[in-house]
């Protein structure tokens, strides 16, 4: 592989764009595809370009057969993101674990005493109110959102913005009672049952988690199960 291609593809993904590298597995010839730009010595016909487009859309690297031999299409899509609202104790292990699992993590908390560099070294922090922060961060279908403050002043605007986004996962910390009250408030604000069903509350898989790190495990496990739901389904059907 040309290191320049890998660098360019990773830079595109980091900037929120998609890219792909196509490699002929017989000749080793390679082309970088970014939008309508193509760089490299592997010629790509219409069928190849269509396969690349599909692979990028499905976020799935794959090998296709061509007359000139197998071609491996490697997809470079923007990172998965995890937006955590509430710079509380649980957010500390969650930020570390989510980063290990490959998520770009941002912690959002308007209380700057909580969202401090000292408490979250090296983690991207925002001290905006969640609705303002989300307007900039623009959560998409590769984003997980977790609210941890269980303070309606902070969580409710976050959940409102989350429900208006395509985020693949929305989770909210709080007891069953807290969650029921939260759903009532959101229903009064105009959200329907199908919207509210998108919120995982109480957050996390029920594994009896007690400590902040254990709760972070249960949350990251639930995010993973949601992200990989089609794999679980395929296995159940087999």
């Amino acid at each position: 592989m040309k290191l320049d291609f890998a660098r360019a593809a990773l830079a595109a993904a980091a900037a929120g764009r998609s890219a792909a590298i196509a490699t002929n597995l017989r000749s080793g010839l390679q082309t970088l595809v970014e939008g309508s730009d193509r760089t490299g010595d592997l010629a790509l016909d219409q069928a190849c370009l269509a396969a690349i487009e599909a692979a990028v859309r499905d976020d799935r690297s794959t090998t296709i057969d061509t007359a000139e031999g197998p071609v491996f299409i490697e997809v470079f899509n923007p990172s998965l993101r995890c937006l955590v609202v509430g710079a509380v104790h649980i957010a500390q292990p969650l930020a570390q674990m989510a980063a290990l699992a490959g998520y770009a993590v941002t912690i959002i908390d308007p209380r700057s005493a909580f969202a401090s560099e000292a408490r979250f070294p090296g983690v991207s922090l925002s001290t905006e109110w969640p609705d303002d922060a989300f307007a900039v961060l623009r959560p998409d279908r590769r984003t997980a959102i977790v609210t941890l403050t269980h303070d309606p002043k902070i969580d409710d605007p976050a959940l409102t913005a989350a429900l208006r986004s395509d985020a693949f996962y929305i989770g909210a910390l709080g007891s069953k009672k807290t969650h029921a009250a939260r759903c009532r408030r959101l229903a009064e604000a105009g959200f329907g049952e199908r919207d509210l069903a998108r919120i995982h509350g109480p957050v996390g898989l029920d594994i009896g988690a007690l400590s902040p790190a254990e709760i972070a495990v249960s949350i990251l496990a639930q995010i993973t199960a949601t992200l990989r739901a089609d794999r679980v389904k395929a296995r159940a059907a087999a």
Binding site: L3, A6, R7, L10, S79, L80, A99, G102
Partner: peptide, 16 residues
């Protein structure tokens, strides 16, 4: 950083 970013980073360091 995901696995691939870490691996490419290591490749860059080795090449450098």
């Amino acid at each position: 950083m995901d696995d691939r970013q870490q691996i490419v980073k290591q490749v860059e360091d080795w090449r450098a």
